[in-house]
């Protein structure tokens, strides 16, 4: 285990815990958590899971997706691997494997990102798909044709089918 990555993960974890306490005690508590992440066990800070909530007003509204985060020993020099466990219909996310195609999780990664900010970036990707690098070609093709109504209803269908349970 690399001590540098562990120290950094501990820092991030304690900062998150502090923030959660702050949220719970304040009026902001009823503001639904849009993204929440935590390590599966405190023994192993290199494997986290989390929940990403769909942005209100978009086709992903009302959905909650479980994600898993695998962190390399060389973190933060190298990006964490973020994968959707709950199936999601999105041009840049593989429907079966849950793999996410996002530049900041690949070539544009810098150490200034944190696990939380990376997950927020993934959430932002939901409402801002990039059709140039699709992992879900069918979804990307619908968007490419400009059929936003069709795309929205398709996404809504899958959101209702798979991601509705947690609310």
């Amino acid at each position: 285990m690399s001590s540098a990555s562990l120290r950094r993960l501990l820092k991030e974890y304690s900062a998150l815990k502090k923030e959660n306490l702050l949220l719970a005690s304040s009026a902001l508590a009823n503001l639904s958590h849009e993204v929440s992440i935590s390590p599966v066990s405190e023994e192993d800070l290199y494997y986290w899971t989390g929940i990403i909530a769909g942005v209100a007003g978009g086709p992903y509204e009302g959905g909650c997706w479980k994600i898993e985060i695998k962190i390399p020993n060389t973190y933060p020099l190298h990006p964490p691997e973020i994968r959707f466990i709950t199936p999601i219909c999105h041009p840049n996310i593989h429907f079966k494997t849950g793999e996410v195609c996002l530049d900041v999780l690949k070539s544009q990664w810098t150490a200034a990102w944190t696990l939380m900010s990376a997950c927020i970036a993934v959430r932002a990707l939901l409402s801002d798909p990039a059709i140039d690098s699709p992992l879900n070609i069918d979804a990307a093709n619908i968007l490419r044709c400009g059929d936003t109504t069709g795309y929205d209803s398709l996404v809504r269908y899958f959101t209702n089918k798979y991601a509705k349970l947690c609310r």
Binding site: S3, A4, R7, R8, K11, P76, A111, A112
Partner: peptide
Amino acid sequence: CWICLGTSNDPPPV
């Protein structure tokens, strides 16, 4: 430190 998130109060990296 924006890389290891350590502060000047923490012990420096090993």
